[in-house]
């Protein structure tokens, strides 16, 4: 009786241990498979659905007093694009820079920095949260994106706004061409009052490490949703055909499209 009990006990514990080890070892393979990827994607979909239920299109990300601004704001990703077209514009303090606005709009247009600065502006002191885990607080001034979208006039098929950038992530290895940085946001975030094309940081013109001449701010999401070095804005109905098809440079590397957490 005693013996049998012991054997059963050992069998059960051994089985549990083995099962656990197999389960964890299998996790990697499961995650790599297609169904695994889809299942893992479900978490992000649920997060987007519930966060959107909880917030209104106008709900603002927290803003901070000037005293909270970080002394040093870490510049992540590309900090000095090596592309020739960008270098030429930077050499001239972006005087020849024109942001292209097009895609599914009735009146595509181009706009210079001085014209952007002449538009009504918004200044906000917000916390920037990187997907890696760090945060920094900065002050941003720029033109609300919705002003540009209203001027262009969205066609009924419009679903997303695509931002194309000057930089590739590895500008110093130009021999192996890498995709340019790009991002997409949906119309909820595109029309959000804090979604601005920032040209100033901390009251001075945006520096090259932080994305001069223009970077996007999407304050209710993580840093990778806020591309720097903006080249063009394109209104689209789907991002399936853009580069890796996942809606952004980091999304194509496996990061979630909705970066609200």
């Amino acid at each position: 009786m005693k013996r049998k009990n012991l054997d059963r006990r050992r069998f059960l514990l051994g089985g549990l241990g083995l099962g656990g080890a197999l389960a964890l070892g299998g996790c990697g393979r499961l995650a790599a498979s297609r169904t695994g990827q889809n299942a893992l994607q479900a978490g992000d979909d649920a997060t987007q659905f519930v966060q959107r239920l909880l917030m209104t299109p106008q709900t603002l990300a927290p803003e901070f007093p000037a005293s909270a601004i970080s002394a040093s704001f870490y510049a992540n990703g590309t900090t000095d694009p090596g592309e020739a077209d960008y270098k030429a514009l930077a050499a001239n303090q972006f005087a020849d820079y024109r942001l292209k606005v097009g895609g599914l709009v009735t009146t595509p247009f181009e706009i210079s920095l001085s014209e952007l600065r002449a538009l009504p502006s918004r200044t906000q002191i917000t916390r920037h949260d990187c997907v890696e885990g760090w945060s920094a607080i900065g002050q941003w001034t720029g033109a609300p994106l919705h002003l540009l979208l209203e001027r262009a006039g969205l066609k009924p098929e419009a679903r997303y706004v695509l931002f194309r950038c000057f930089d590739t992530m590895d500008s110093d290895s130009l021999d192996t061409p890498r995709p340019h940085y790009y991002e997409t946001v949906d119309l909820v975030d595109a029309y959000h009052p804090q979604t601005i094309l920032a040209y100033d940081m901390g009251g001075a013109a945006l520096g090259v490490p932080h994305g001069a001449p223009l970077r996007l701010r999407v304050e209710r999401q993580l840093g990778y949703k806020m591309p720097k070095y903006l080249k063009s804005i394109e209104v689209i109905d789907s991002f399936a055909a853009v580069d890796g098809g996942k809606g952004g440079y980091w999304e194509d590397q496996g990061y979630d499209w909705y970066a609200g957490i």
């Binding site: 997060t47 966060q51 909880l54 917030m55 709900t59 603002l60 990300a61 927290p62 916390r127 949260d129 304050e219 209710r220 999401q221 993580l222 970066a259 609200g260 957490i261």
Partner: peptide, 12 residues
């Protein structure tokens, strides 16, 4: 949840 920029807009 406090680490979520989206949730922080809902509950600052």
């Amino acid at each position: 949840l406090a680490m979520s920029p989206g949730f922080d807009a809902v509950a600052p």
